[in-house]
Design a protein around this nucleic acid. Structure first.
Lengths: 218, 218
DNA sequence: ACCGGGCCTTGATCCGGATCAATTGGGTGA
DNA sequence: TCACCCAATTGATCCGGATCAAGGCCCGGT
């Protein structure tokens, strides 16, 4: 790992900036240190679909891949830990352990992508919103901690309504309406537009229509 | 590779049989030799979404993964090339090259899954059908060959209308209607219900609304 | 030849989410 | 404090695809 340390350098990206354009040749791979970014695809007529959420420790840019197929956009200020692509790939070949770890991470992403396909193809708008909230909760380590501590489950949405819509394959109006409906029905409480309280996690998961585990442990 | 050869054994599965149930503990990993299988997820109320198509050379079961999260079902008779899980994993650790290859394949699947997310979230029923046809053409090596030879582009659909629907996040009635509409508009011709002729590939790709490459070379 | 059962098509109607259109609210800077 | 801007909400209407319901086609069995 000391070898890796010698290669790395840091880069910051402001909220809203695009880190990679689809089609760009990338000459580095990076890991997110702090902040949140999104991976999205766009059709010529402007329809866009987010296909991945990048949280701290996730990878940007694929070793061994030619060009990026997606836009990567910072939704918050971001700190990246970068490696020049060529040296990193060489190191990877010499160090099976790194490739192993990368495979593990990629398989996790593949599972996440497939879970999302079920959501996009078969869930209703209401179920989509509930599922998004459940997944945000599941993937946020600090929330997991708070949960185990028995505190009230509350957090800030890291996404605008529009970003949620791009994620869920909905329009922002539908997102807004369904959020209001979930609030009206007592599934969630809105402290402010972005700050949410979940009074009953089991209820939320039920709304998500998710047969999978409650999603508590990762 | 001789070491791998010593470990492998073959298994056949009939069309319609389920190879793995989601949640089952798998004690082997396998590669498809001949035939086609599908990967799907099902909600408690029966809604199902296919999340992957498995063609010859694709993997069933993930080394290092605990339980399968999906059903794997044979749509045609299948021949599997199997390896017991434990020995395969040990071999993989000793042989970086295998891990490398597995990573490459997994990244391809991730790209395919994300392309599919765009389809599920943002495309119309008509675009979905056209895209499915385009992808079947793109992934069928023998068709690619025929294409380069300049022959007419025709093939049998390896899926029922219901399977197509599960793939595209539609109902089978909608699939049927849109296939009829594409036929009416001259985008495709139906020799029989399953046997399709594409008179003009460019036209089909346009209908697919795909900004990506024509999809000719893989 | 007749029947039966998959698979597929087609029609009629319904409904969830998209679209179009105001309006509100919160935050920021002058 | 006010003006402005952008995110979000809410309302009215429309439309694409789902749902419910009949048939039609093809093949295999008797």
């Amino acid at each position: 790992m000391e070898e890796l340390d010698a290669l790395k350098f840091y880069r910051t990206v402001e909220a809203g900036q695009t880190i990679v354009w689809s089609g760009d040749e990338m000459d580095f791979v990076a890991s997110i240190v702090t902040g949140i970014a999104t991976l999205s695809q766009t059709m010529e007529d402007g329809r866009t679909q987010m296909v991945g959420l990048l949280l701290p420790s996730d990878f940007v840019g694929r070793p061994g891949r030619r060009a990026a197929a997606y836009d990567v956009t910072a939704t918050t200020d971001i700190v990246l830990c970068c490696f020049r692509k060529r040296p990193f790939e060489e190191l990877m070949i010499r160090t099976p352990h790194i490739g192993q770890r990368l495979l593990e991470m990629t398989l996790d992403e593949l599972d996440a992508a497939r879970e999302w396909m079920l959501l996009l193809g078969r869930k209703t708008a209401r179920e989509k919103i509930a599922t998004l909230l459940a997944i945000i909760i599941r993937r946020d380590a600090s929330l997991q901690q708070k949960l185990r501590g028995g505190g009230t489950l509350e957090f800030d949405l890291p996404l605008t309504r529009e970003a949620m819509a791009d994620y869920l394959g909905l329009t922002l109006e539908t997102v807004s309406r369904q959020v209001s409906a979930l609030k009206r029905d007592g599934v969630i409480e809105l402290v402010s537009k972005r700050h949410i309280v979940i009074p009953d996690l089991a209820r939320l998961l039920e709304e998500a229509g998710d047969d999978s585990d409650g999603g508590l442990p990762i």
